[in-house]
Computed example of a mutant assay.
Amino acid sequence: MSAAPQLTPARLAAADFDATVPALAELLAAAVADGASLGFRDPFGPAEAADWWQAQRPAVAAGDLLVWTARRPDGALAGTVGLALTRKANGSHRAEIVKLMVHPGSRRRGLAARLLAAAEQTASRHGVGLLLLDTEAGSGAEALYQGPAGPGSASSLAMPPTRSAGCATGASTTSGSPDAL
């Protein structure tokens, strides 16, 4: 049996956003149904997910929300992540990782780490030195954000230098899921 091909994240062009919304909505609905901590509760279907993604259109068009996708060889969307930049004068050094999700059928292959690395590298190129994110304490996603130092250590919230030079990630873990980006 041959190994599954490694899926590569690609930045979604703003011009392609509307055409991609149905696939993004299906992915979001599948991830929520599978229990992912994304700020929504089941039941949450593709129609509600599409509404959420459509509400992001202005931010994508303005370049304030950068989105990456990764597709399987058959063209189906396997994962996505967003990087929400800020135009606030006192916030140009920070951004937020939003809606990092991998389809349940594409998990455990390193795709989430590759999506996160793509967002981190772009954040660094934008001069961002602080990345924020929210996740649920005890969730499967928490380990991805903890880094090699593990939970509870002073350096557990800093991404290793090999992941993104000069870009620290502050992981805010919560017992509930905020409805923010």
Rank of each mutant, 00 (worst) to 15 (best):
S2Q: 12
L7W: 07
P9N: 07
A10H: 13
R11K: 13
R11T: 05
F17M: 04
V21R: 09
P22K: 07
P22L: 06
A23Y: 06
A25S: 08
E26V: 09
E26Q: 12
L28E: 07
A29E: 04
A31H: 01
V32A: 01
A33H: 04
A33I: 00
D34Q: 07
G35I: 02
A36S: 12
L38A: 06
G39Q: 00
R41K: 06
R41D: 10
R41T: 13
P43L: 05
F44K: 05
G45K: 07
G45W: 09
P46H: 03
A49M: 01
A50W: 00
W52A: 05
W52N: 05
W53L: 03
W53F: 12
W53A: 03
W53H: 12
A55H: 00
Q56E: 11
Q56C: 14
R57T: 14
R57G: 01
P58I: 06
A59L: 15
A59C: 06
V60D: 12
V60H: 09
L65G: 09
W68G: 09
T69Q: 14
T69L: 11
T69Y: 02
R71W: 09
D74K: 10
G75Q: 08
A78F: 01
A78T: 06
G79A: 02
G82M: 08
L83R: 10
L83A: 03
L83I: 09
A84D: 05
A84M: 09
K88S: 14
K88A: 15
H93L: 13
H93N: 14
R94L: 14
A95S: 11
E96I: 06
K99S: 03
M101K: 02
S106I: 05
R108L: 02
R109M: 05
L111M: 05
L111R: 00
A113R: 07
R114F: 07
L116Q: 02
L116Y: 01
A117L: 00
A118P: 01
A118Y: 08
A118F: 01
A118T: 04
A119H: 05
A123P: 06
S124N: 03
S124K: 01
H126L: 05
H126T: 02
G127V: 10
G127W: 11
G129F: 11
L130P: 08
L132A: 10
L133M: 13
D134L: 12
T135P: 00
G138K: 07
G140L: 07
A141Y: 03
A141R: 09
A143D: 11
Y145P: 10
G147K: 08
S153C: 10
A154D: 14
L157Q: 15
A158I: 13
M159A: 14
M159S: 15
M159C: 12
P160L: 12
P161I: 08
T162K: 01
A165P: 07
G166I: 12
A168Q: 15
T169Y: 04
A171L: 14
A171Q: 06
S172F: 15
T173S: 14
T174P: 02
S175R: 12
S175D: 11
G176C: 04
G176P: 00
D179P: 03
D179I: 09
